[in-house]
Design a protein around this nucleic acid. Sequence first.
DNA 1: CCCCATACCTTGATCTTCTAGGTACATACC
DNA 2: GGTATGTACCTAGAAGATCAAGGTATGGGG
Lengths: 107, 107
Amino acid sequence: MPTPLLQGTLDLLVLKTLSWGPRHGYAIARWLEETTGDALQIEEGSLYPALYRMERKGWIEADWGKSDLGKRIRIYSLTYEGRAQLRAELAQWKRFSAAVASVVAPA
Amino acid sequence: MPTPLLQGTLDLLVLKTLSWGPRHGYAIARWLEETTGDALQIEEGSLYPALYRMERKGWIEADWGKSDLGKRIRIYSLTYEGRAQLRAELAQWKRFSAAVASVVAPA
DNA sequence: CCCCATACCTTGATCTTCTAGGTACATACC
DNA sequence: GGTATGTACCTAGAAGATCAAGGTATGGGG
């Protein structure tokens, strides 16, 4: 059974991934799945629209390039605004997950 | 600035709230906001549809009653299926939040 | 030659949440 | 009597994101 991503979390995950350096879409998905031990499945139908969204908002920017295998790839990197956005979403996630934790596992 | 709820989390929060005993809708919202120190705002336009949804699915059931103030209230309680659902959503939340944590705060 | 993995893209459906209203009543206050 | 506030429930429509399910193209291995 696939676990659907929680709405709004994908942006945070992608921004954080790109904070380690530029990557192309497919690689972002693979890296996230690997890092989370396949706990998260990044659907391409969610990823690519998310990338366009974030590019439109100025959080990331893209360039065409070539992969090691000689395939054309679209390399995304974090902008200055993207780093600010990452900080904001990180703070928001901490706040939110702490709130949920306080409900599901009360002290 | 209101923090929008992450999709799918409201069900978990409501189920967990009801695991402490029956409550009516308005009280569920107040209790959640209080417990989380107002970090989460439970909009009525989200809450009531969620309650109907969960009732339709058989996770909760409702009875009409009267509040201390003499107002008609709809008291919700967890069903057997609701407890199973709570366990499932709890496990899923732990899995998911751990996955996000592994991305945003790598070891 | 065929298959698989890489790599990108798009459309439409689905589902939730939120916005922004609304009703009703009880209490408190002037 | 009139008004404001808090309780308590309800609803329609908009907005937004994710997902399912397709599609294209190419390079390497067998």
